[in-house]
């Protein structure tokens, strides 16, 4: 029985040791967080931020399609919070809807969180964020394509009532909103290809600008649309969310908690750990191959 080389021993290391290493590199930065200098991506995050900054005064409506799930919450939830903060700082009206029932809870949680942040700081009624005046939570409507097409014609046919059962027309901010023509942009937060559906059905048919907040693994799918201008900027995973949070903090002096920015330390250490493991795995593999060639 041939003796195992050291390279083979390394290659066959118990996977629990790898799990333990991953556990340490994730937990330690969470317990002892450190700030990282984040470079803003010009093509994606900065483009989206500038587009929202340039919303015309006569419309000022941002429709957020919040289709985030518990699985992609760490990446998409900070994006939604950042978008809401930006809109409320700029006094942009926000409509929030969900195309999947599992997204309702998280969407409402994000709205409540940001509204509470602003209301805790507010000194006047104008500074407060009020449902019906500054934002409306439309709720959920199945299946995905029906509300996307329906909103292009008449929002009241698709959502006669909001999520809380109020007549949609009774809200002051809905006075001049009937369809996509009265909105500035759609922001699709999704872990799947839903932004592409919005491009195909909303932008192509009704001409409204579309942007996306997507998970890091699906970023590559959207670059053709970014290049053609069909997507107006994009947020790429947790790093994109952290970049947007930084831009908001820098522009508006926001001091609220930045979830994505806090998570970047753990994400960075984990990425470095994965890179090192790939390099080490290949190194041990090549050394083992070399040993076998010399031996044989």
């Amino acid at each position: 029985m041939s003796e195992q080389t050291i390279w083979q021993k390394f290659l066959q290391v118990d996977r629990r040791i790898i799990y333990l290493i991953v556990l340490i590199v994730i937990i330690v930065p969470i317990i002892f967080p450190f700030d990282l200098p984040i470079r803003i991506s010009e093509r994606t995050t900065q483009t989206l931020f500038d587009a929202v900054e340039r919303f015309p005064e006569n419309k000022n409506v941002f429709l957020i399609s919040a289709d985030l799930n518990p699985q992609d919450q760490p990446e998409l939830y900070p994006m939604m919070v950042a978008w809401l903060r930006h809109c409320f700082y700029r006094k942009i009206k926000v409509l929030v809807m969900c195309l999947y029932p599992t997204s309702l809870g998280l969407a409402e949680q994000a709205l409540d969180q940001v509204a509470t942040e602003f209301n805790n700081r507010a000194n006047t009624d104008e500074e407060r964020i009020i449902h019906g005046r500054d934002y409306v939570f439309l709720g959920y409507k199945p299946p995905p394509i029906v509300p996307i097409l329906g909103l292009g014609e008449d929002i009241y046919q698709v959502f006669p009532r909001d999520f809380y059962g109020n007549e949609l027309r009774s809200h002051p901010m809905m006075k001049n909103i009937k369809s996509y023509r009265d909105m500035d942009m759609i922001g699709s937060l999704a872990a799947n290809t839903l932004p592409i559906t919005y491009i195909a059905y909303a932008r192509a048919r009704f001409g409204i600008a579309v942007t996306g907040g997507v998970t890091a693994v699906s970023v590559a799918d959207f670059y053709p649309y970014l290049d053609s201008g069909q997507l107006t900027g994009m947020l790429e995973g947790m790093k994109g969310a952290a970049e947007y949070e930084q831009l908001i903090a820098k522009t508006f002096g926001d001091t609220e908690r930045m979830l994505a920015f806090e998570g970047m330390s753990a994400q960075s250490t984990t990425h470095i750990a994965i890179i090192l493991m790939v390099l080490m795995g290949n190194f041990f593999y090549f050394m083992q191959q070399r040993h076998e060639r010399r031996k044989g």
Binding site: V13, P70, G105, I274, M277, V278
Partner: peptide, 26 residues
């Protein structure tokens, strides 16, 4: 649903690292 979904995807980090070390070969 939220805790189960989050847990399921959180575990992927461990499996990914293990796969990166063991299977990702040039």
């Amino acid at each position: 649903l939220v805790p189960c979904g989050s847990t399921m995807f959180a575990m992927l980090a461990f499996y990914m690292c293990s796969a990166a070390y063991r299977a990702f070969r040039m």
